[in-house]
Design a protein around this nucleic acid. Sequence first.
DNA 1: CCGGTCATGTAATGTGTTACATGATTAC
DNA 2: GTAATCATGTAACACATTACATGACCGG
Lengths: 178, 178
Amino acid sequence: MKNYSDTTYAILGILTTECKSGYAIKQLIDRSLNHFWKISYGQIYPTLKLISQEGLAEIRTSSNSGRPDKNEYYLTAKGLEVLKSWLEQPIVNFPAERNEVLLKLFFGHYQSQEKQILLLQNYKENLEKRYQTYIAIELAIQQDKNEDAMYWLFTLDYGKRTAQAAIDWCNATLEKLK
Amino acid sequence: MKNYSDTTYAILGILTTECKSGYAIKQLIDRSLNHFWKISYGQIYPTLKLISQEGLAEIRTSSNSGRPDKNEYYLTAKGLEVLKSWLEQPIVNFPAERNEVLLKLFFGHYQSQEKQILLLQNYKENLEKRYQTYIAIELAIQQDKNEDAMYWLFTLDYGKRTAQAAIDWCNATLEKLK
DNA sequence: CCGGTCATGTAATGTGTTACATGATTAC
DNA sequence: GTAATCATGTAACACATTACATGACCGG
């Protein structure tokens, strides 16, 4: 079976939910997957085109009163098969996160202690905001009673745990610097 | 002041250490920064060329007996200034890590419980290996007595803490699935 | 009447990986 | 003798972001 990019599989996966248009896909990712997957329209629309060209989804255009036409993509049997076979394949690349904060701290020697502390405090604040966002998304999902809810909550739990570990690290490192 | 890519700043930073050639830069990154920064020769050599063209470093070629000539790059005053000013700039993009494991789990509904468990167990094993690698690097750095050692250990502590949080999450999620 | 939301899409640009090319030395 | 290490570099390709272009509806 042909290989597609992870972005393609991500979109294929989202097409199994009630989100069927490019716009709706973008929204779902921004609202629910944002902590581990991002995407731009510059990827979504060309990928949707590819998906339909490959026969993985069918387009149904619904003309909304006033609003622009909405192109809705429905997975074909082949599309679902491609998605499932990707899900079953073991993961090869466990990517190392690129972290600009750590990069700057790595060269901390060339910076004043004061600036180092500001860097960490700023990072900590961002992590705390992120943590609060996760809790907000969690509450929204719990109220939705979606059948995929359990899996979505798993990913949020991951986000919360790793964010908390990073916050703890900030505190510990700030202590060491002072 | 001109803006360069993070990759350029990373290389500029490494040129402050005793690693001065493309080959040595690659080694340092693979050995010490690998948990939060990766790089390929396809980036290193063109970036070094840019760095010297911009007057941020000077090339000194040393012909090694037998071995290929080694191009060593020494930061100029301008290069050091560019590095320092980047270090002081606050971080704007706190990137969300792209995580293929979470992406697959997000669509867990379309997969058997058995396969989900394998996915998590596999992930956990990889995280544990990673954790052990961090400990090994930590020991190597502690013996080196480098003046930057403190900062390098900070970044490793980050790696260990977040890896441990992810391992804990795997265990908790595996429990919930069973 | 102005900003936000709904809605689709392309082009230019930036960024990064992989594969290829070369070749001597060293350790087993 | 053969695999790993040392050493540099390019070309093709893959992947992603940003800016641009268009335009109607809705709420305040």
